[in-house]
Design a protein around this nucleic acid. Structure first.
Length: 423
RNA sequence: AGAGAGAUGGCAGAGUGGUCGAUUGCGUCGGUCUUGAAAACCGAAGACUGUAACAGGUCCGGGGGUUCGAAUCCCUCUCUCUCUGCCA
């Protein structure tokens, strides 16, 4: 959520940012925010004034009671009735204004960083760099959904029986390579200075709101109605919310956490031609890195996270590219996002395996995540990134490394797998 | 799941209708002392809102109520603890 004072003091900047996002109705909505804010503050002042007079009267009555002047006390009591009615009314007006303001504010996305490219669709994203050589596969190379059947390492039909489409069953070396990838990613993060956490994989409504999934992406999450809990779509939600309503001592900054969790996404209405096999699932595994930074350090941290993710891809010997998302393609809460995509040789397409974002104070404002720096209380910057999401990594490893004798496991992963080929 | 107890500042823990934003202890920070540290002593310190700055307002788990006045009384929700039951 944007800060009200920021909008108030930087109206033009705000509008320019929203335009970059191709956010419709920006002018009208900002006008509405400003007028509601004005009303809120005027009412607040009236109310405060009324309450101040009530408080004074109450004190006066207390003093009169003490001296035993009952008649004077009763007279003073009579004077409070009007103040009471007035403050009740004003409270109601104030509550309504605050509520309306909140309702509008949560519909406004984050302001893009100045380096975010102009653009409307994924085609407008900027390719920052490409790394590695795309392998030349023989003509009879198979996509991963054929390969997993051939080597019997993932069973999609069995998953349908147990749960439904999009819930695969990993078997044998398929299960072991999943476990290997998770451990590899976690170990690499530990080496880079991250502290491992194991959060709950369900969250309450406050948590969903804190990181921005609610109320915006309600339909994207599985919901357990009986207990009012959401299955997490990413570990970003529980891990970042560890710091909700927290004032971090300066000595604890920066915070670096890494966590492995399964992730659940309903993906309602997004099933189509491009989602075969592992390309899009309802349940998948992911290792996530989360950081909390001083505002002046957050963009350096973002670059560091990007390099960390790239180092993982390099160790896995996967060709990849890094995109800087354009204004129209960025997530609602982000100020700057890098997407990492690996080359999937048999499908002949790039697959997104990581998204690394700086949210600046957007999440922190909802979370009330602050720190006192240089004697001033201020919102911290939150960042997160996948490091990494498993299914598409696996898809790419399977496709890129297929040989007539089986699938070669990347060297870095062999110690974790305990085998060097799937055959 | 049943019965009972409880929720107060970073933590511990007072406060049961009126100068209580809240005693005290520990912890934290600053100072004195010391070559330095510890100890001792002295002092400082909540958050939000608001103002040009003061002032003012709000906050004792959440919400509502009684009262001129609520941390304190009433209702309700949530959570925690203890005992019993069940269970990885």
């Amino acid at each position: 959520m944007l800060q009200l004072t920021f909008i108030r003091e930087n109206k033009d900047l705000t509008l320019a940012g929203l335009r970059k996002r191709h956010f419709t109705n920006a002018d009208a909505i900002i006008e509405q925010v400003l007028s509601l804010d004005q009303k809120r503050r005027d009412t607040q002042r009236d109310l405060d004034d009324t309450l101040a007079r009530s408080n004074a009267k109450a004190k006066e009555i207390g003093a009169l009671m003490k001296t035993g002047d009952k008649a004077a006390a009763d007279a003073a009591k009579a004077e409070t009735a009007e103040l009471k009615v007035r403050s009740k009314d004003l409270e109601e007006v104030l509550r309504t204004a605050e509520q309306q303001l909140q309702e509008v504010l949560v519909t406004i996305p984050n302001i893009p960083h100045s380096s975010v490219p102009e653009g409307r669709t994924p085609d407008d994203n900027e390719v920052v760099l490409e790394h590695g050589n795309k392998p030349d596969l023989p003509a009879d190379a198979q996509p991963h959904w054929e390969l997993v059947r051939k080597y019997d390492i993932i069973d999609f039909e069995l998953g349908v029986k147990i749960a439904g489409a999009g819930f695969p069953v990993y078997k044998g070396k398929g299960a072991r390579i999943q476990r290997a990838l998770i451990n590899f990613f976690l170990d690499e993060a530990l080496k880079a200075g991250y502290v491992e956490v194991q959060p709950p994989i369900v969250v309450n409504e406050d948590s969903g709101f804190g990181t921005g999934q609610l109320p915006d992406k309600e339909g994207q999450m599985y919901y357990v109605t009986e207990d009012k809990l959401y299955l997490i779509p990413t570990a970003e939600v529980p891990i970042t919310n560890l710091y909700r309503d927290v004032i971090l001592p300066e000595s604890q900054l920066p915070v670096r956490n890494v966590g492995y969790t399964p992730c659940f996404r309903r993906e309602a209405g997004s099933w189509g031609a491009h989602v075969r096999g592992l390309n899009r699932l309802h349940q998948f595994d992911k290792v996530e890195i989360v950081r909390i930074e001083r505002p002046d350090q957050s963009y350096a941290a973002l670059e560091e996270m990007s390099l960390h993710v790239q180092s993982l891809l390099q160790k896995l010997e996967l060709p990849y590219r890094v995109l800087r998302l354009c204004g129209g393609d960025m997530g609602f809460t982000s100020a700057l996002t890098y997407d990492m995509e690996v080359w999937s040789a048999a499908q002949q397409r790039w697959l997104e395996v990581s998204s690394v974002s700086n949210f600046e104070t957007y999440q922190a404002n909802r979370l009330k995540l602050r720190s006192k720096l240089d004697g001033k209380m201020q919102l911290m910057h939150t960042l997160n990134g996948s490091a990494l999401a498993l299914p598409r990594i696996l898809a790419s490893i399977l496709e890129n490394n297929q040989t007539p004798d089986g699938i070669r496991i990347p060297q870095a992963l062999v110690p974790y797998c305990g085998f060097d080929v799937i055959d």
